[in-house]
Design a protein around this nucleic acid. Sequence first.
DNA 1: ATAAGCGTTCTGCCTTAGAGAACAGAACGT
DNA 2: ACGTTCTGTTCTCTAAGGCAGAACGCTTAT
Lengths: 251, 251
Amino acid sequence: MDAKHPVQTTEKTLALIEQLIEGGPYGVTELSHELDMGKSAVHNHLTTLQSHGYVLKADGEYRLGLKFLEIGGHIRKSMEFYEVAEPEVKALAAETGELANLLVEEQGVGVYLMRAKGDDAVDLDTYAGLRTNLHTTALGKVILANLPESRVEEIIDQHGLETKTPKSVGTRDELFDVLDDVRERGYAIDDGERLEGLRCLAAPVKASSGAVLGAISVSAPASRVSDEDLHGALPERVLSAANVVELNINY
Amino acid sequence: MDAKHPVQTTEKTLALIEQLIEGGPYGVTELSHELDMGKSAVHNHLTTLQSHGYVLKADGEYRLGLKFLEIGGHIRKSMEFYEVAEPEVKALAAETGELANLLVEEQGVGVYLMRAKGDDAVDLDTYAGLRTNLHTTALGKVILANLPESRVEEIIDQHGLETKTPKSVGTRDELFDVLDDVRERGYAIDDGERLEGLRCLAAPVKASSGAVLGAISVSAPASRVSDEDLHGALPERVLSAANVVELNINY
DNA sequence: ATAAGCGTTCTGCCTTAGAGAACAGAACGT
DNA sequence: ACGTTCTGTTCTCTAAGGCAGAACGCTTAT
C-alpha cells in the first residue's frame, strides 16, 4: 500500500539507503547523479545518516554501517517464534548433517530468519533476512497451504508467480493443486524446483489458533536423499522439530 | 560527528525508528506523545516507512519489519572479512564445544558479526549486531591493542571507560598497561571481567598492512578452562583460527 | 602552474512538512 | 441503542526548512 501523504524528504533518504545497499561505497557526486539530486541535498542526507550511525564515511566515500545489522538482530531476537525455533533448527541441522532453514511470511513474501549448516550441508547463498517468493520454495508452499485461500489470492495478485526453473509451479491452478497436496500430507516438498538437484522438505509451525507462524525445512542434494527418505524418515524428523516448536510456543 | 546541516525531517523519521526499536508495537497517538510530534506527522512518517517495507501495521499498531534484518544481512554478507572468518569461527565452536565470537570495530565500538555455539556452549545473550564497549571484552582489547595509540585515546575520549564489574579496567593507565601485555602475548584474556565466572580468550585478525580487521574469541565457564588451558592449548587454537583467516584474506 | 575533479559550505527561493481541526469507525459502559 | 471516548486517518493552510545552484577550499592529474 502506498502512503496517502508520503513524507518526500524521508523517501529521498530511503532512496539513498537503497542505493547504498545495491552498490557502493559511493561518493557524493556519484550518488547525486545516480539519484538525480543536488550534491548539497545528498551531502545533507548522508551526514544526517552518519551522525545517527546508519552511514559511515571512509576515505571520502560513504557506505552503510552495521547499525542495520544491530536493528535487524534486535528485531529478530525479540520474536518469540525465532527464539523458540532457533535451537530446534540447529539441532535439525546437526542431526541430519544438512542445511536447515527457518522462514516466516511478511507482506506476502518469505523471509529467512536463519539457516543452520550441518557437517555435510550444501552451501546455498541464503542468509538471514533474505526474501523469496513463497511459491518457489517448500518453505513458502507450506506457509501458503496454511493461509486462508483469499490471502493466497491476494499474494499471487501482488507478487505474481514468477518461475525460476521449468519445474516450478507456473499457474494459479497448479499452485492450488499443490497446496491441496501439502495440506493433505502435512509437509511440502521441493524436488529440484528452485535449484536443479536440490531436494527440500518443509513443515509448518502453527499457533494453537491454527494460524501459521512460519516453517522449518531441510535442504539436501538429491544424491543423498532417496525417494524413501523423502516420504519417510525425513518428513518425520522435520515434522517432529516443527511440533516441538509448536509445543514450546503454546506452552 | 554531528551533521552541519542535518535534514530535520529525516531525523524525525530516525527518531521514530529508534522508538520502535525500544518498545512497541506502538499506536499513532502513543508515538506522537512519546516523540512530541503531531499525530498527522507521525502518521505520515509511519505510512511512508510502511510503503517502503521498513514498518508494518498489524491490528492497528505499527512495528518494525524484517527489512532491517535483510539490509543488515546483506551488508554483513558483502564483508569479505565476515565471509572468510565465518567458517573458521564455526569450526572453532565445534572443536572446542564452547561459544565462539567474531567482532569488528566500527566508530569506536565493537560490533559482534556472529557467534557460533558448540555443544556445551554457555548461552550469553549476545547476537549479531550487538554493540559493546571495546575495553570491556577480550575481543575489544585485542582490537584496541592493535590500533594506533592516538586512535585509542580518541575512542576513550568518545566512549569513556564505563566499567561493568569491579574487575574491569577502570582507568586509562590501567588500560594501556593491559594493552601492552596483549601486544606482547599476541592475545587477550578476560577472566570474569565482563561476567563473573566467564573466561574469554581473543586473538586479532590483521591485514597484511598490519591494520586490524577484527577479532575472534572463545568464551567458556571458568570451571571448564584451567589456568594451563588459558595460557596453553586455548590461545594456540584461537590464534591458529585467526591465522587461517589472515592467510585466506591476504591470499 | 594550471586545470579538473572532489567534498563541503552558503544563500535564498519555493516546495512541503506538519500543527491542529475535523472526521470515521471501533470499543466501551450505561 | 445510546452517547462518550478512545482510536487512526484526512484535510487545510502557513511557517519552516529542503535543496538547487553557485561559490569555496582541497587534492590529484596534467
